[in-house]
Nucleic acid binder design. Structure first.
Lengths: 197, 197
DNA sequence: TGCATTTCTTAACCTAGGTCAAGTGCCATG
DNA sequence: CATGGCACTTGACCTAGGTTAAGAAATGCA
């Protein structure tokens, strides 16, 4: 179950099997049932999950009770409330499983230990943070400037696989539109494609 | 002109004057006139600016020619296209000055050198990245879930000083609404406050 | 002080997308 | 094989906020 994570670590760190063995005891495999909650609002997020099979998702809930998807994490992705994890502050979000999922989680100790074992751990981590920032910046820009249709097209272009595996209503909640709105957008796109002979 | 930056570095790094002197030659003071451009789209952003007086701003321009403000940087803030700076890739954004501004800029060499001089430079930098991520996450959440009015109220609560110094149309472009839209929101807020005797 | 330029407001009108309420189709479990 | 429950669609209606165009204020510059 944690083989994929092992591979991920060894590859990104340019590490060896024996280096990985030195941190392995801090890697906890878990099987998560569809719908199961891994993090609730106001809890402190002390676990970062790496998905080896299935999909996890983080989301917020507004005063009106509506869910807003922050992130999808399919295979090979890491998910956590980074702010809560790093600053030890209560989380604003929830994390749950969209499918029966196999994952591993690590706590802070893993990061501390890994920094000692892998020469470039901090550097690789910084790279990951920058990737994260770049991604969020693009998302903000899209939310500021693009219509529902454009945001959807961008989404299926960027996450082709996810757009097939994830319920449409959740994609809508990621894009900042309603399920009905997304349904309409899809219909209009279908018409366009049909009409351009 | 660079005194504020010196103070900023010494404080955040818990460093000494003499440590600062060892990196000072990599700190370039600049005076920027209102309206002057510091970064254009498609350029690689190789400078990070720290503002000691005035305001800088980063923004994108969409296909319709509309500007979308990504960040305001008043005194004591740092501004750059982080992705372009870190990954050496062409920038998607512009940076200009909203007021006559005094700033310093540093290039990558500064970071390299500072990492050697200040014991915790990398750690403090990681903290800054996490702060950045937290901030962007909140912004995404607001864009997904809150009305124009709520976003505006949040903005003036969070950046009281900026909301007085920055032209309204630019605040609108930060919030993802039109200047006219913001004007209407303000009017409605004024009416509400007037009518609650 | 006076003119020009930019910023902000207002109002009429419009539209993308929200809301609400019925369907329709699709598994999934008994 | 039936049925109960989701997920998705559809359509009628509504509204927040966009668009356009015009003026009013503010600001800068000479």
């Amino acid at each position: 179950m944690s083989d994929l994570f092992k591979k991920y670590i060894i590859e990104t760190q340019c590490g060896t099997e024996s280096q990985y063995e030195a941190v392995e005891h801090l890697v906890y495999p878990v099987a998560i049932k569809k719908g199961e909650m891994l993090l609730q609002k106001d809890e402190i997020c002390d676990k970062a999950y790496f998905v080896s099979k299935g999909i996890l998702r983080s989301y917020t809930v507004d005063e009106a009770g509506k869910e807003h998807t922050i992130q999808f994490a399919p295979e090979n992705w890491i998910i956590a409330d980074r702010s809560s994890f790093y600053f030890n502050e209560p989380s604003e979000m929830y994390i749950d499983a969209l499918e029966n999922t196999e994952a591993i989680y690590v706590k802070k100790e893993f990061f501390d230990k890994a920094e000692k074992i892998f020469e470039n751990f901090a550097k690789v981590n910084t790279l990951a943070l920058h990737n994260n920032i770049r991604h969020m910046e693009k998302r903000i820009n899209y939310l500021l400037s693009a219509s529902a249709e454009k945001r959807y097209l961008k989404f299926i272009e960027t996450y082709r696989d996810l757009s097939l595996r994830v319920p449409q209503q959740l994609i809508a909640s990621y894009l900042g539109i309603t399920p009905e709105g997304l349904s309409r957008v899809r219909k209009e796109l279908a018409n366009k494609n049909f009409n351009r002979d």
